[in-house]
Design a protein around this nucleic acid. Structure first.
Lengths: 136, 136
DNA sequence: ATGTATGCAAAACATTTGCACCTGG
DNA sequence: CCAGGTGCAAATGTTTTGCATACAT
C-alpha cells in the first residue's frame, strides 16, 4: 500500500497516513486499537498525534481500506480490509483473535434479513470463548 | 419480577432495583441504554441516580437477569433476559431492533469454535440493515 | 498558493469510583 | 443495628473537536 493507493481513495498521501497504513499492514496480530497504533508509532519515533490516528482510521474506514470492530472491552479495534469477508472468535482470557469464514452462516443471514423485511447492509458475528492455550 | 426474585439472585430488594426491573420488564422497545432507563425513571418521578442505574444493570447482568448488547453507537443497551436465546437485526436508519432465532447458525457456531480449538462461552450476532419502513 | 491535514489541548461522552449518608432485613 | 446500597460529584477512559500551524499538490 503506497501513496498512489491513498490518492485513489481520495486522500492526500501525507506522512501520518502512510505511516498508519504501514503499521496496520504489518500488524501482528492484525487487530489494533487506536491507542495500540499510537503507541506503535511513538515507539518507532514517528511523531503522530492520537487525534490524527483516530481521524485517519475513520477516514480509512469510510474509504473501505480498514474495517472497525467493536469487540467487548470498550475500545474499537481496526484491521486492514481484505478481499475475503470473515468473522472473529475472541479469547475472553488472553484477547487472542482468530478469524473464520462460513458460507452457510453468510447465506442464512441473508435469508433472515429478507424474511424480516430488511435490506442487509452489514453484520457482525463474534464468538467468545477460551482459546486452546487458555483452556484448563 | 418482584422482591423475592431479587433476593433469590442474592440482591437486596431495594427501591431503585425494583424500579429499574419494572421499567425494563415493561419496556417497549425491549432494548434500553442506561441513559434511557435513567430518563424513564426521572420522568416517572423516581429519584434514582445515573450511577446507580449503571451499578444495578451490571449486577443484574452478572445475576443473569438482564443481557447487555454492544450495538454500534457507543453505548451499551440492555434487555430482560428471556428463556430463549436470540440474536438481533438493527435498522441503521431508525434504530429499530428486531429479534430472531436460528438453530442452524447456533449449531455451526459450536462447530466453528470446536474446529478452532476454543471452548465457546458466548457469542454476538448482529445484522445491520434498513428495516421495512426505512427502505427505499 | 491554497485547501487540507496535523498536533495540541480542551471538550464531549459513556461509564466507574470515592465517600458520606441512608435503608432493608 | 449494620452490612450493603445509594446519590452526588469527581475521576476515568475513549473518542471528537477547535484552532493555529504545517504540508501536499
Amino acid at each position: 500500500m503506497k501513496a498512489a493507493d491513498l490518492r485513489k481513495a481520495g486522500l492526500k498521501a501525507t506522512i501520518p497516513r502512510l505511516r498508519i497504513m504501514e503499521v496496520l499492514e504489518q500488524a501482528s496480530p492484525r487487530h489494533m486499537s487506536a491507542e495500540d497504533l499510537y503507541r506503535a508509532l511513538s515507539e518507532a519515533e514517528e511523531d503522530v498525534g492520537l487525534a490524527t490516528v483516530y481521524r485517519v482510521l475513520t477516514q480509512f474506514e469510510s474509504a473501505g481500506l480498514v474495517v472497525r470492530h467493536n469487540f467487548e472491552g470498550g475500545q474499537s479495534v481496526f484491521e486492514m480490509a481484505c478481499e475475503q469477508h470473515h468473522d472473529h472468535i475472541v479469547c475472553v482470557r488472553c484477547g487472542k483473535v482468530d478469524e473464520f469464514v462460513d458460507e452457510t452462516i453468510e447465506k442464512i443471514q441473508l435469508d433472515i434479513a429478507e424474511r424480516q423485511g430488511y435490506e442487509l447492509t452489514d453484520h457482525s458475528l463474534i464468538l467468545y470463548g477460551l482459546c486452546p492455550d487458555c483452556r484448563g
